[in-house]
Every structure is written in structure tokens, then in C-alpha cells.
């Protein structure tokens, strides 16, 4: 790949970096990343990855923009209310960087389509608003051997973990157990969320993807980063692989095909 004059100018501030250079920029332009969710986490992820020159970004969301989304879902504007989030996002991202091939999927990710939607990705970013989808992403990516990052937010708090199946790092299910028996944990709509915490966590997710593609720095693997913006604490908690984890233990069965991921428990 030969960078064009326009690309050299556009990406100059990151090409300058020792960790990126022209070689790194070409890696970003050749990479394929899939993003699940175009809400509060997904907005900054999509924005920064597009800006950084990710070659192919597949964005998945089934939902439409509502006015109560706008205090935190920064890719969507007031005149996007009632529009599909994928269309709203596509419009902004194409204006931001025509270099980036944006592929939109107007579907809810489920156990019957997750493998199809995620396969072929170099990296997957989970930015949905519910734990069953996070668990489905975890299980599907482990099954397919795709590295991924999952973040979650509530109130002023956030957490993020990256999993590299090839390196057999601790997975989301190792930490958070099995939700297929029913999830009654609190959601954002009831507990509330300050608009910028998913912004902070989404930026960290995008950073994980870029660092993985460039093979630089340290990822959030075998540990979870817990962020509290009220107290300003950023703490890592060390994690260990659970040898009995249903998703990543040796000879694990294919959970994706066996579970409905507590669909009946997701509030609509």
C-alpha cells in the first residue's frame, strides 16, 4: 500500500509518532474492526477509529435515536431522532473520513447471527448496553478466535477488559459468570449515567483496538480497569483465567449455539 498525499497530510500527526509511522498507518488502513452498538460507548469508538483511518469499520445496531440518548450518544444529533442509529452514524462518519469503508448492519446481534457478523474481523469492540450481548460477544469471539474488548458503564463508573483468545487471557465470562440463568442487574435507564463516562470508556476501547492492530504498548488483559469519575480513581484489578469457565476452558462446548443469552430478560 502506498499512502496518498492526502493521507500523509490527514494522518501526519500520528505518522509522526514513533509507535505509528507510515508502516503503522498502513496497518490501520488495512484493518477490519467490528463495533457492536452505536450508542454512548459506540459513538466515540466509531468516531476515533474512523478518524484514525481504520480501513473497514462494520457497525452493528438495530435501534433508532431517541431524545433521551442525546446527552451521551455523541454521534447522533437532535434532527436524527427516530432515525436508525446506523444511518445517523454512517452520515457523520463518511463526512469525517471518506477513506474509511463503513459497513452498516441494521440488525440486533443474537446467537443465531453473531458468528456471521463477527467473523473476518481483526478486532471486535463491544459497546452495547446490556450484559447478555456482552456475554454473547465474549463467547462468539472466543469461538472464532478474535480478540475483543468489552466496556460497561453505570452512573459515574465504568469498566473495561480486553481478551486475546490466542493468548488464552481471562475472559469476560471468567469474571462475570453465567448470565444465561437470568440477569437482574441494573441497567442505565434505571440507575442513570453521566453522559461522559461512556465517552471516556469508549475512547479507551478504541485505544485498545488501535494498540492491538499496531502491536504496541500494554493491553487491558488479565486485568480489568475500573474507573470511578466521582472519586477519580482508575484502578486495575488483576484477573485470572477460571479453569472451569464455560466459554474458555479446554474442550468448552459451543455456548453460542446452546444459549439464548437471557433474551427474555433484556428490557426492551
Amino acid at each position: 500500500m502506498e499512502l496518498s498525499e492526502e493521507q500523509i497530510e490527514r494522518y501526519s500527526r500520528q505518522i509522526v509518532l514513533k509507535e505509528v509511522g507510515g508502516i503503522g498507518q498502513e496497518k490501520l488502513l488495512s484493518s477490519k474492526i467490528t463495533l457492536i452498538g452505536l450508542g454512548a460507548l459506540g459513538s466515540p469508538v466509531a468516531y476515533y477509529l474512523t478518524a484514525a483511518g481504520i480501513g473497514n469499520l462494520r457497525i452493528i445496531d438495530f435501534d433508532r435515536v431517541e431524545s433521551s440518548n442525546l446527552h451521551r450518544q455523541i454521534l447522533h444529533y437532535t434532527n436524527d431522532i427516530h432515525r436508525k442509529k446506523t444511518y445517523s452514524a454512517f452520515q457523520k462518519l463518511k463526512l469525517l473520513n471518506p477513506d474509511c469503508d463503513i459497513e452498516i448492519i441494521n440488525e440486533r446481534i443474537t446467537s443465531s447471527n453473531s458468528k456471521e457478523l463477527l467473523k473476518g474481523s481483526n478486532f471486535v469492540i463491544e459497546g452495547s448496553d446490556n450484559i447478555p450481548t456482552k456475554m454473547l460477544t465474549n463467547d462468539t469471539c472466543i469461538n472464532l478466535g478474535i480478540p475483543f474488548t468489552i466496556a460497561g458503564v453505570l452512573r459515574f463508573h465504568g469498566q473495561i477488559i480486553t481478551v486475546i483468545p490466542e493468548k488464552e487471557t481471562a475472559c469476560y465470562r471468567c469474571v462475570f459468570g453465567d448470565v444465561t440463568i437470568g440477569d437482574e442487574r441494573m441497567s442505565c435507564s434505571q440507575a442513570g449515567v453521566i453522559g461522559l463516562i461512556p465517552g471516556v470508556m469508549g475512547c479507551l476501547e478504541a485505544n485498545e483496538a488501535i494498540k492491538y492492530i499496531l502491536d504496541i504498548g500494554d493491553l487491558i488483559i488479565n486485568r480489568i480497569l475500573y474507573v470511578d469519575l466521582l472519586k477519580y480513581s482508575f484502578n486495575f484489578i488483576d484477573l485470572y483465567k477460571n479453569p472451569d469457565c464455560l466459554a474458555c476452558k479446554k474442550d468448552a462446548i459451543d455456548l453460542v449455539e446452546k444459549s439464548d443469552y437471557g433474551r427474555s430478560n433484556i428490557c426492551q
Binding site: 499512502l3 500523509i8 497530510e9 501526519s12 500527526r13 505518522i15 509522526v16 509511522g21 507510515g22 508502516i23
Partner: peptide, 14 residues
Amino acid sequence: CPMTFVYTKLALEK
């Protein structure tokens, strides 16, 4: 700056 360095770096990488 920084284009002088950017073009130099891109050439050196090759």
C-alpha cells in the same frame, strides 16, 4: 513541521 519529518520518516521506513 511536522511534514518535513513525516516525509523523511516515510522515506526512511522504505
